[in-house]
Simulated scan of single mutants.
Amino acid sequence: MQADRLTSAMLIGVLVRRAAAAGGFATILVKGDEISGVILVQAVEKGRESGLFERVPNLDGGYRLARCGPDPAEGGEALSQYIARRRRSDPDLWIIELDIAEAERFAAETIC
Rank of each mutant, 00 (worst) to 15 (best):
86 R>M: 11
22 A>I: 09
60 D>I: 13
84 A>H: 11
79 L>S: 03
1 M>E: 05
86 R>F: 01
110 T>L: 04
17 R>E: 13
16 V>L: 10
76 G>T: 11
74 E>R: 08
71 D>Y: 10
96 I>M: 07
14 V>C: 09
109 E>I: 02
101 A>F: 06
33 D>A: 14
110 T>S: 09
87 R>Y: 02
34 E>R: 14
24 G>D: 08
87 R>Q: 14
86 R>W: 08
111 I>S: 00
18 R>V: 07
66 A>E: 12
33 D>E: 11
3 A>H: 11
39 I>Q: 00
6 L>K: 13
1 M>F: 10
107 A>G: 03
44 V>C: 05
10 M>Y: 10
22 A>D: 14
52 L>K: 01
81 Q>K: 15
54 E>P: 06
12 I>V: 15
17 R>K: 13
78 A>F: 00
36 S>D: 14
53 F>I: 05
12 I>T: 03
30 V>S: 07
58 N>G: 08
89 S>A: 15
104 E>Q: 12
73 A>L: 12
107 A>W: 02
35 I>D: 15
24 G>Y: 01
108 A>S: 11
95 I>E: 03
95 I>V: 15
20 A>W: 07
2 Q>T: 12
94 W>L: 03
62 G>E: 10
40 L>E: 02
33 D>F: 06
110 T>W: 02
31 K>G: 06
30 V>M: 11
61 G>L: 06
87 R>I: 13
25 F>K: 14
34 E>S: 14
80 S>W: 00
88 R>M: 13
12 I>Q: 02
4 D>F: 08
108 A>P: 01
68 C>D: 09
48 R>I: 15
52 L>E: 01
47 G>H: 10
54 E>I: 05
70 P>Y: 00
38 V>C: 06
44 V>Y: 10
2 Q>D: 09
58 N>D: 15
80 S>E: 09
95 I>C: 10
28 I>K: 01
112 C>V: 09
56 V>N: 03
15 L>V: 04
59 L>H: 11
48 R>E: 15
38 V>T: 13
30 V>L: 11
77 E>C: 04
13 G>M: 03
80 S>H: 07
30 V>N: 09
86 R>T: 05
80 S>C: 06
46 K>R: 15
76 G>S: 12
95 I>S: 03
97 E>D: 06
112 C>W: 01
92 D>R: 11
88 R>C: 10
83 I>V: 14
